[in-house]
């Protein structure tokens, strides 16, 4: 093993620059939550949860698989809770390693999600009773996916993270397409393109960190 505790200067400038890059990457990795843990649980939740919606509440009111009507929402909610716990634990484990403005920034971003989702839910709950079931479902799903896309884009802007911004923009665009195409198809598009997008984002982030 080479001694790392001596005071010898590095051998040459090129080696010094390589050393600098290596140490920066090492600590950067320690301070970044594993993108797989941050994105895959959500991607999986969207993929499976919205597929259940598509199968039970298909296009033009079709029932593709005769599941109990309460099952899709139950599956989606359970998967969201599980994903929230996984990303919460993974994120806080990393944020404990740092003390300073970054903690406050992360907290504010996390609170933005909770507060904004509560606000949207309150608005939708006031109106969804007045709409036919399929339209009400589209209002909830379309609104929540739009909010997710917006918050991901904002996160990309805050942390100068292009990967996160692209995910947010992608989610927003496929949501617009899904809402225009209509109920049923929206669920399928969000499941495959939205959930798939998150899985890809987790993979890309992970490969960049390695």
């Amino acid at each position: 093993m080479t001694p790392i505790d001596d005071d010898a200067p590095p051998v040459n400038p090129a080696e010094s620059l390589a050393l600098i890059a290596r140490e920066r990457a090492n600590l950067g990795r320690e301070l970044t939550p594993d993108p797989r843990l941050m994105f895959w649980p959500w991607g999986f939740a969207w993929l499976v949860g919205f597929t259940f919606f598509f199968l039970r509440f298909g296009p033009d009111g079709r029932v593709i698989v005769d599941l109990p009507a309460w099952l899709p929402l139950l599956v989606l909610t359970a998967l969201f809770i599980a994903a929230g716990i996984i990303t919460g634990v993974a994120g806080s484990k990393v944020s404990r390693r740092i003390k300073g403005p970054s903690n406050r920034q992360g907290l504010m971003y996390g609170l933005s999600w909770s507060i904004a989702f509560t606000a949207f839910s309150t608005v939708f709950a006031q109106f969804s009773g007045d709409l036919p079931e399929a339209r009400a479902g589209l209002l909830w799903a379309g609104g929540m996916v739009a909010l997710t896309g917006a918050l991901h884009m904002a996160g990309g802007a805050i942390w100068d993270d292009r990967n996160l911004f692209v995910l947010g923009a992608w989610t927003s665009v496929i949501n617009i397409v899904g809402v225009i195409v209509g109920p049923g198809w929206h669920s399928l598009i969000v499941a495959v393109a939205g959930g798939g997008g998150m899985i890809v984002a987790g993979l890309v982030g992970w490969m960049r960190l390695r």
Partner: peptide, 17 residues
């Protein structure tokens, strides 16, 4: 150099354990 390089990843005013 290694210590300072690693610390340079931190944002201003952030501290690491």
């Amino acid at each position: 150099l290694r210590v300072v390089s690693a610390l340079s990843v931190l944002r201003d005013d952030d501290r690491i354990t």
